[in-house]
Simulated assay, not measured.
Amino acid sequence: MNYLLLLVFSLFIHSSSATINFDYFMLAETWPPSFCQTKTCISAIPSKFSIHGLWPQNNSLPHPTQCKTTKKLVETMLKPLKPRIANVWPSLTGNNFGLWNHEWTVHGTCSTMAAFDYFKLTLDLYAKSNIKDLLQKKNITPGKGPINRKDIEDAIKVATGGLAPQLSCDQNSGNLLEVRLCFDTSTNPKYKNCSTNTNCPLNNVYLPL
């Protein structure tokens, strides 16, 4: 009996140690014209924000990465989602599956989700808001600048219920590289405040064509 209890306890400890805990999701969306000024893009440059990835995050460092490297991604897993993924989650450097596999290996394996569910959730969260449209409604359009960082944040808050996004900019040009939106970990994730840490200047942000 004591041996059986010890075995059950050992299995419980092993199972618990394998559980990945994180505090929230961060959806990173890239502005392709900015990205393609820093990298060599070999495909057509989209004129809308595209998905970079959905990242499980902790409130404090370190953030979880590469949690279950044995959970390999196979392209056929994504077949039902393929048209949606290719449209909004392209690799600007030319290897779509390479990008998706990287995001799954580094971040998706920390989500505690199956691959199909992780990618579907990413697509669904992306579809909740159109960042380019939100900016245009506030007269923030590509090619126009310089832009005040707070104006960008306030335009996006219209969709998030006043909750703050996180912005990332190229340090040399001031170009807006990414907008990051944060969500809680509920079964139907809701917007939450992102960390206000940003490398974007206050007054000289650009959204290139």
Rank of each mutant, 00 (worst) to 15 (best):
T109W: 02
A28D: 08
L81E: 11
S50K: 07
A86L: 10
A115Q: 12
I152G: 03
S173Y: 06
L78C: 03
D151I: 02
S186P: 10
I45G: 05
N95Y: 14
S50I: 13
V158G: 07
L125P: 09
L54V: 10
C110K: 08
S43E: 14
G108L: 00
W31Y: 09
N130C: 01
Y206S: 00
L54Y: 09
L134N: 14
A86Q: 15
I156E: 06
T38S: 09
S17G: 01
R149P: 05
E29C: 01
P46F: 01
H63M: 00
T30V: 11
C194M: 07
N87K: 12
H102R: 14
R84W: 03
F25Y: 15
S60N: 12
P83E: 10
D23E: 13
I42T: 15
K157P: 05
V106N: 12
N204P: 03
L176V: 02
Y191Q: 07
L207M: 06
L99Q: 09
T160R: 04
K138A: 01
T198G: 01
Q166G: 03
H52I: 03
N58G: 05
E29V: 03
K120M: 03
P189H: 11
P208R: 06
K82S: 06
S47R: 14
T70V: 05
V8R: 13
T109R: 03
I51M: 05
F22G: 01
T76M: 05
P46C: 02
G98S: 09
C200N: 05
A155N: 08
I152Q: 06
S173M: 04
N203T: 14
L121C: 04
D151A: 00
Y3L: 00
T69K: 12
C36E: 09
